[in-house]
C-alpha cells in the first residue's frame, strides 16, 4: 500500500494542487464547525440536521478534491451503512428509554443549568444521533450516485 502523503501529492488524481491545498486548510474548519453545530444545537441555531449536512459536505469536498481513493479510506460504503443504521437505532433507543419514566420520548435525564453544554437532558444525545444518521446517509447517497452511476454508464458502454 502506497504512502498516503504521496497519494495526496499525486497530481494525476483529483483536482489541481491549488484546490487540494485550500481543501487541506478548510476541511478541518468545516468538520469543527459541523461538530459545533451538532453539539450546541440546543443552545444556538442549528442542530442535528444542519450539522449532519455540513459534516457530509466535508466528506464530499474531500471526495471531489482528492479523488475517491482517499475518501473511501476515511469512510467506505459499509461503514456509512452501519453508521446510518446505528444513528437511527440510537435515536429510537433514546425514545424508548423514556418508558422507564412513563411514556415515549420522555426527557428522563436532568434538565441541568440553562446555557450549559451538558443540559436539556436527552436533547444533545438525540442531536448527536441525528447528526450521525444524516452525515452517513447523505455521504452514502453521494457515493452511490457518483460511483454506482459511473459504473452503470461504463457497463452500458461494454454492452454496446
Amino acid at each position: 500500500m502506497p504512502d498516503i502523503d504521496e497519494e495526496i501529492r499525486d497530481t494525476s488524481k483529483g483536482m489541481t494542487s491549488i484546490v487540494k491545498t485550500v481543501v487541506r486548510f478548510a476541511l478541518g474548519i468545516i468538520v469543527i464547525f459541523g461538530a459545533y453545530i451538532v453539539l450546541y444545537g440546543h443552545l444556538t441555531p442549528g442542530g442535528g440536521f444542519a450539522g449532519g449536512v455540513i459534516l457530509a459536505c466535508g466528506y464530499i469536498v474531500l471526495t471531489l478534491a482528492f479523488g475517491r481513493q482517499i475518501a473511501l479510506r476515511k469512510m467506505n460504503n459499509k461503514a456509512a451503512s452501519i453508521l446510518d443504521t446505528s444513528g437511527v437505532l440510537a435515536f429510537l433507543a433514546i425514545g424508548l428509554l423514556g418508558y422507564t419514566g412513563g411514556y415515549f420520548f420522555l426527557n428522563f435525564l436532568g434538565r441541568g443549568k440553562m446555557f450549559d453544554l451538558v443540559s436539556a437532558g436527552t436533547i444533545p444525545l438525540c442531536n448527536i444521533a441525528i447528526g450521525l444518521k444524516v452525515t452517513a446517509s447523505l455521504f452514502a447517497i453521494f457515493l452511490a450516485l457518483s460511483i454506482f452511476g459511473r459504473f452503470i454508464s461504463s457497463l452500458v458502454d461494454e454492452d454496446e
Partner: peptide, 13 residues
C-alpha cells in the same frame, strides 16, 4: 419545515 427540507434532499436523491 426543518425536517421537510432534509426529507426533500433524500427524495431528490
Amino acid at each position: 419545515v426543518l425536517t421537510s427540507i432534509v426529507i426533500g434532499l433524500g427524495v431528490l436523491a
